[in-house]
Design a protein around this nucleic acid. Structure first.
Length: 804
DNA sequence: ATGGGGCTGCTTTTT
DNA sequence: GCAGCCCCAT
């Protein structure tokens, strides 16, 4: 190679990189490095708000569009001085967009097809976010297939996709069922009864947890038994685990942990399947890597294969799921696990003010055993974090409601700028009450999920049995719901027969007349089997929505609820909502099927439906807020015993996890944080005094301002007494002249609207009154609003007007 | 077989 | 304080 040639090559690469750098000028240097580092293992340690999703998405797009162009030393044959001149001209005159479209494709080396990219996340919400950002980035380009061909999804959805295709290789028949936590609990509970193990001695929750942890570690029942050693408790659990696993198999069902574990089993025992995916997925990315457990680590490495083109993104400071098996080791030892790892730290925060980051940094600095990281930002100081102590939870709720109302009526904010994040769901009630009283629009996540409602679970159980009659757990759920005279004795007898004959419960039911033990219930059982068979036939040629409707009709389920009268009205509505969901599912999926719908139901959660566009204050646990951001965040219940929680104060490890949770909480806020605590808190039916949370004192004083008015505080010795007289005295305020003035309670409204009346609310708009309940002096309305759905409002505060 | 009344025990949660 | 479970009475 001549010297001139070498010079040309050097200048070519220099120009190429300069063009890429200009194209990515909206990224910071670290981010750019992450996006353009394409081959080999890559660990991105991304602090809160440092744009990690942006990096993940842009890197995938980069690989699809340009491949390894940035780092490759390949020079196309035709490059000459004239070409370099054109590139220099482009660099000086073109916008970044123009460069991306017109120039950079010249440099493409080894670019990938969309279906060769695998991106794994933890939540559906994160997966949805990545998918939509990818779609936006590839829109209007000539990339064949586009974003929809990229394999982006949760660990579970990716594994399901693989298992639906290859499940028979690890023992599952087509149409297998996914058991959720409730099904799992029932099944384990059944096993324990059959093994005559007292639930008092060994709580089901514990057993569930131990089995789940064993599955995280990829231990079969036999392997688990070996680790349990001579431990009596461990031996019992091993017995239960064995029976549980057998019954899951017999029901042609998997639990959530199996979805990962069985995929790992499939890929490690079937080389041809693994090689197929290794050839397909040339690049693998994993989000929230700090939350992966051992099974997910194995899965990732099996899917990645030999090429090691694996990017993991995470933040050890945001690891808050240790309690369910996540092991921080995965991220801490990533560079030991793989050779030649590129490590990139993203520490520039684009979300919060320096005050908020100062507080967050100071809190998390109290933890040991972490990658040293410190967030910084280019933005200003912003407002100080406000501290406030209130007397009790009702006052706390009212304080939050008042603050929000004041800031909204000030005109600078909307309701959707505010979030209330709490440690546990039990804290939500008084806050919700305060919002309802103030007539403030709010949405609450968590608590009772839609698919956890009894009527929905029952309907889904019918569908599961129609799709998979071997699903005994769900069969038992609905065999006598509505009541059809097939009681526990009959079911137990049938199960006994099934165990002896080695067939499924449903097989026994089909031949009920043959068995003496079932003679009494035989007629009812035949009716039930007939019902299921009719519905099975019907399902072959109908949509899921039609099937649900027909099922509710023929089973008498709808009739049963309707007989319950007005109070059951919302349950009927929920069932209608389920049908609506099925219609929506059919619209979204070309290959809609009953099993597909059931899979959706099993894997989709409520947080996924959180709609950021509606103008309402949002309430949720800190855990579910991870990955989200809000202008202003309220953190109620910052007290020892609540946050950090009671039992974590004993273990330094759990305390660190609580502290990471506090870090997550504070870093959700862009501009303002309000931290509140109460003097008296009702917990578990007892009033307690909790000292302020240690996390408050870990925040540097210059970041906070305490707005608690200097008031004579109740002496601690009166505490026992104050617990008894919990009733809050009537509010008494002083007017300017120092005269005490009693604030009058607002009089109940003169007019009470009857159900059926069309009314208008200041914020919620038009709606119809469904029910009116007298509550003390006041009335509570339940109203379906055209825009925001059903709300419960107090008559005094709702200020409703009749709509003509 | 079913429904009501007393007892316990309690984070966080995605899938 | 409340929900979910077990037992007992019908």
């Amino acid at each position: 190679m001549s010297a001139a040639d070498t010079g040309l090559r050097l200048r070519y690469h220099e120009l190429k990189r300069a063009l890429f750098d200009k194209y990515y000028s909206d990224l910071n240097e670290r981010q750019r490095e992450a996006v353009t580092t394409v081959n080999g293992p890559l660990l991105v340690l991304a602090g809160a708000g440092s744009g990690k999703t942006t990096v993940l998405v842009r890197r995938i797009v980069h690989i699809i569009k340009y491949g390894d162009a940035y780092n490759s030393d390949f020079v196309p044959p035709g490059v000459d001085e004239a070409a370099l001149l054109r590139y220099r001209y482009a660099l000086e005159t073109m916008t970044p967009q123009e460069i991306g479209e017109l120039v950079l494709p010249d440099f493409r080396v080894d670019a990938c097809r969309p279906y060769q990219m695998l991106a794994i996340t933890f939540t559906n919400k994160a997966a949805g976010e990545i998918k939509s950002r990818l779609a936006a980035a590839l829109e209007g380009t000539d990339i064949e297939g586009g974003a929809s061909e990229i394999w982006a999804g949760t660990f579970h959805s990716i594994c399901m996709r693989i298992l639906r295709r290859w499940g028979d290789l690890v023992g599952y028949e087509r149409g297998f069922t996914v058991y959720d936590t409730d099904d799992t609990k029932r099944l384990i509970s059944d096993c324990m009864k059959d093994l005559k193990i007292e639930e008092k001695a060994l709580p089901v929750k514990t057993v569930m947890n131990v089995i789940s942890r064993a599955k995280d570690r990829l231990l079969s029942p036999e392997q688990y038994e070996a680790t349990a050693g001579g431990d009596y408790r461990g031996a019992k659990i091993a017995e239960i685990y064995k029976m549980y696993a057998d019954r899951l198999m017999a029901s042609n069902a998997l639990d959530f942990d199996d979805i990962i574990m069985k995929t790992v089993e499939l890929l490690s025992t079937h080389d041809e399947v693994r090689e197929l995916y290794n050839r397909q997925f040339r690049y693998v990315s994993v989000d929230e890597y700090q939350d992966t457990n051992h099974a997910q680590f194995r899965l990732t490495s099996l899917l990645t294969g030999e090429h090691n083109n694996l990017m993991v993104v995470g933040d050890d400071d945001q690891s808050i799921y240790k309690f369910r098996g996540a092991t921080i080791e995965n991220i801490l030892s990533f560079d030991r696990e793989y050779d030649d790892v590129t490590v990139i730290k993203l520490e520039q925060n684009y979300r919060s003010t320096s005050t908020i980051l100062g507080a967050a940094n100071a809190i998390i600095a109290h933890n040991r055993g972490r990658h040293e990281k410190s967030l910084w930002c280019a933005g200003g100081e912003g407002a100080k974090i406000v501290l406030r102590e209130l007397d009790n939870q009702n006052d706390e709720g009212k304080y939050i409601a008042d603050k929000i109302e004041a800031l909204v009526s000030g005109g600078s904010s909307q309701y959707r700028d505010f979030a209330v994040l709490y440690r546990m769901n039990a804290q939500s009630a008084p806050i919700e009450g305060a919002f309802a009283k103030a007539g403030m629009p709010y949405r609450m996540l968590g608590g009772m999920r839609f698919y956890d409602r009894k009527e929905i679970r029952d309907a889904v159980a019918y569908l599961s049995v129609i799709a998979n009659p071997n699903d005994s757990v769900r069969l038992k759920r609905i065999i006598n719901e509505p009541k059809r005279k097939i009681g526990a004795t009959a079911v137990a007898a049938a199960e006994e027969i099934a165990a002896v004959e080695g067939c499924s419960l449903y097989d026994v039911l089909k031949d009920a007349r043959r068995h003496m033990a079932l003679s009494r219930a035989a007629a009812s059982i035949e009716g039930f089997v007939q019902l299921i068979e009719t519905l099975r036939e019907f399902s072959a040629a109908s949509s899921v929505a039609e099937l649900i409707d027909r099922t509710l009709e023929l089973s008498g389920y709808r009739e049963m609820i309707a007989a319950g009268g007005e109070t059951e009205l919302d349950r009927l509505e929920n069932l209608d909502q389920l049908i609506a969901n099925a219609v929506e599912y059919a619209e979204d999926n070309e290959d809609a099927s009953l099993t597909g719908f059931l899979e959706d139901v099993a894997l989709v959660s409520e947080v996924d439906r959180y709609d950021e566009t509606a103008d309402a204050v949002v309430m949720m646990t800190i855990h579910s807020a991870k990955g989200l951001e809000f202008n202003t965040v309220f953190l109620p219940g910052m007290e020892e015993g609540v946050f950090p929680g009671q039992q974590s104060s004993f273990s330094p490890e759990e305390l660190e996890e609580e502290r990471r949770l506090a870090y997550v909480a504070v870093t959700r806020a862009k501009e303002r944080v309000f931290i509140t605590r109460t003097h008296n808190r009702m917990m578990y039916g007892q009033t307690r005094y909790n000292p302020p949370s240690r996390f408050i004192s870990e925040i540097p004083p210059e970041c906070v301002i305490d707005e608690t008015p200097e008031a004579p505080r109740r002496a601690p010795e009166t505490f026992g007494e104050s617990a008894k007289r919990q009733r809050v005295p009537e509010p008494v305020y002083k007017n300017g002249a120092g005269v005490r003035v009693e604030v009058k309670k607002e009089a109940p409204p003169a007019e009470v609207f009857a159900p059926g009346t069309i009314v208008r609310h200041r914020t919620f708009g038009r709606g119809e009154v469904i029910s009116v309940t007298k509550m003390g002096q006041d009335y509570m309305y339940e109203i379906i609003f055209d825009d925001v759905g059903t709300k419960k409002l107090m008559a005094t505060y709702a200020k409703l007007t009749k709509e003509s």
